[in-house]
Write a protein that binds this DNA or RNA. Structure first.
Length: 416
RNA sequence: CGGGGUGUAGUGCAACGGUAGCACGAGUCCUUUGGGAGGAUUUAAUUCCAGUUCGAGUCUGGACACCCCGACCA
């Protein structure tokens, strides 16, 4: 991608209204644009990151045997009334004939009756379906940029079981998959499994909380066993429910995912039962599992940055290499610089390395460097008259400090 | 939703009830070119609706929007 052709440009200054540091960098870099409070446009650069996150997540979902589909965002009122959730923080609207809808906030109300249409016998179980879809929540107060929006992208997985053991086992598998997802997305080092209220179906549900000063949740990390509990659990249990530990460290954190055992709450509401081998009716057990993709995007920006900009993990960076050419006043040298970057791009493309090519004319070196730091692409490769003299390019990792020279011949095989 | 605050150009700020201005940004041209360079030039704003007044960015009322604290967050 030629940076001169990129739809967006970076911004030196943005409105002081946005206070979340990560979101400010995403806005300045042109990854996202704010449309209204809690509502963001995902710009081409941001979409590239989001698509990588999506790929990581959907690959894991596939590993879990879940099948992807897309459910509607426009959900009839009667579905919400069936489960008694019409009064939650839904965005509500009316159709042409006066019929009422609630926009998707989470979708047990669609997933459950849907599953009922295709699963009848105990032989049809277990199974799981998931989607990555825009969700809407009529938050009374949107805040912290992408961390708490009214419209956001979420992966929601629903699993269906007829034995508690099977349900429990699957739940554990998803739990592991979630840690793997967060690790791949580059935020594992500080993400804690956190016990939270489980409602009436299991003692606890689990949140995945990434430590960050920008988080709005407070979690308490057990010094003894390393599991965390949220505020609600802390007030119910004086000791760690997991190990009985009594010492906790308090941390601010961002909830990047959550998983629930729903029991029969939704299947019962929709009259969803399975026929057993002896012809009797069996209750259907459900679990749901969510990850906010846009929130994850915001969390990475928030937790992986410095004063100059974002530091994308390799796995979800919009590009792997930021190839930057610095113009020279000497025209023949300029032609050689252009030729060198053309060859480099060819070599990198052969290895399927994604390159953002800063070919912008008339931009000072300083401006290009600042933009590069802001965009946070993991590898910066500079071609200039200076590097040309040594038949090499200059490589600097965004996350590191040192720069190294690599010969033209070496770049094709370089392991970024 | 309760409480508080703020609405002037893309951003940050000015303007006694009397000509809406400054800086930065952005665009164009020229000069520059290893950490946001210089010059010239252009661009662009009083959130909306009423009211008071000879006259409203400024005063009054209402709406809307945005921000902050709290509550909420399946």
């Amino acid at each position: 991608m030629r940076q001169s052709q990129l739809f967006t440009k970076t911004q030196k200054e943005i409105s002081a209204d946005e206070t979340n540091a990560g979101t400010r960098l995403l806005l300045r870099g042109g990854f996202i644009d704010k449309t209204a409070a809690g509502v963001y446009t995902i710009l081409p650069l941001g979409l590239r990151v989001l698509q990588k996150i999506e790929k990581i997540i959907s690959a894991k979902m596939d590993d879990l045997g879940a099948q992807r589909l897309v459910m509607p965002a426009l959900v009839p009122k009667k579905n919400w009334e069936t489960t008694g959730r019409w009064n939650y923080d839904l965005f509500k609207l009316k159709g042409a004939g006066g019929e009422e809808y609630g926009l998707a906030a989470t979708l047990e109300e669609v997933a459950t009756p849907l599953a009922k249409k295709f699963a009848f016998s105990y032989k049809d179980f277990p199974f799981a379906i998931y989607q990555i879809q825009t969700k809407f929540r009529n938050e009374l107060r949107a805040k912290s940029g992408l961390l708490r929006g009214r419209e956001f992208l979420m992966k929601d997985l629903y699993s269906f079981h007829i034995s508690q053991k099977d349900c429990d086992e699957y739940y554990e598998r998803v739990k592991e998959a979630y840690f793997s997802i967060f690790k791949q997305a580059g935020i594992v080092q500080d993400t804690y499994l956190t016990l939270s209220s489980g409602g009436s179906f299991s003692k606890f549900s689990h949140e995945f909380q990434t430590a960050s000063g920008a988080g709005e949740d407070l979690i308490y990390l057990c010094d003894n066993c390393g599991i965390a509990i949220n505020r609600e659990i802390k007030s119910e249990y004086p000791k760690c429910p997991e190990c009985g530990g009594e010492k906790f460290s308090e941390k601010k954190a961002i909830e990047v995912g959550n998983i629930f055992k729903l029991g029969t709450k939704f299947s019962a509401a929709f009259g969803f039962e399975a026929t057993g081998g002896d012809g009797c009716k069996l209750p259907v057990l459900m679990c749901c599992y969510g990850i906010g993709l846009t929130r994850l995007l915001g969390t990475v920006a928030e937790t992986s940055r410095d004063d100059a900009g974002i530091i994308w993990p390799e796995t979800i960076a919009p590009f792997s290499v930021h190839l930057m050419e610095l113009e020279s006043k000497d025209e023949p040298a300029n032609r050689r610089i252009k030729e060198a970057s053309r060859r480099i791009r060819q070599d990198l493309q052969k290895n399927q390395i994604e390159v953002l090519y800063d070919d912008r004319a008339g931009k000072s070196a300083g401006e290009k460097f600042k933009d590069s730091d802001l965009l946070g692409i993991p590898n910066r490769v500079v071609v200039s008259a200076k590097t040309l003299e040594k038949n090499s390019v200059e490589l600097k990792k965004r996350a590191g400090l040192e720069t190294v020279l690599i010969g033209f011949d070496g770049i094709a095989d370089y392991k970024f």
